[in-house]
C-alpha cells in the first residue's frame, strides 16, 4: 500500500538527484535538466500532500482543508517551469553563438 511517506521519499530522491546534477554538470543543458528535477520533486510533494489530506500534523482551527490547492500549485509550477526552460534555453543558444560552446566553464571572462 502506498502511503504519503513513499511519495515524500521519492521526491526527496528526485530533489537530491537534481541538486547533484546542478552541482556536477559542466554542460548548461545538463544543469537545466537538474533544475527541472528539483521543480518536479516539489511537484510530487504538492500533489502527494493534496491527495493525502488527513495529514497528522494538520492543525486544528483552520478553514476547510482545501485539497485542490496543492494540485493547482503544481499546475502553476509546470507552467513556470516551461517559461523558465524557454528563457534558459534562449540564453544558452545565445551563449553558444557568442562563445561557441555550452560548457559553463567557457563563459568565464569576469573574475575577482
Amino acid at each position: 500500500m502506498l502511503t504519503l511517506y513513499h511519495f515524500l521519499l521519492l521526491s526527496a530522491i528526485v530533489f537530491a538527484l537534481g541538486i547533484a546534477a546542478v552541482v556536477s554538470r559542466k554542460n548548461a543543458v545538463g544543469v537545466l535538466i537538474g533544475i527541472e528535477l528539483i521543480l518536479n520533486a516539489a511537484n510530487i510533494n504538492f500533489v502527494a500532500f493534496s491527495r493525502f489530506t488527513e495529514h497528522p500534523k494538520l492543525i486544528a482551527g483552520l478553514a476547510q482543508p482545501a485539497a485542490l490547492e496543492g494540485q493547482v500549485f503544481a499546475i502553476f509550477v509546470i507552467i513556470l517551469a516551461a517559461c523558465e526552460a524557454a528563457i534558459a534555453l534562449a540564453i544558452i543558444i545565445n551563449l553558444f553563438n557568442t562563445f561557441g560552446s555550452i560548457e559553463i566553464d567557457e563563459a568565464q571572462t569576469m573574475r575577482g
Binding site: 530533489f15 528539483i38 521543480l39 520533486a41 516539489a42 494538520l58 478553514a63 490547492e69 500549485f73 509550477v77
Partner: peptide, 15 residues
Amino acid sequence: MLYGLSLLYGMVGSL
C-alpha cells in the same frame, strides 16, 4: 525555495 514551499504546504495544510 519551491521545495521548501511544498514541504510547508504539507505541514500546514494550507497555502
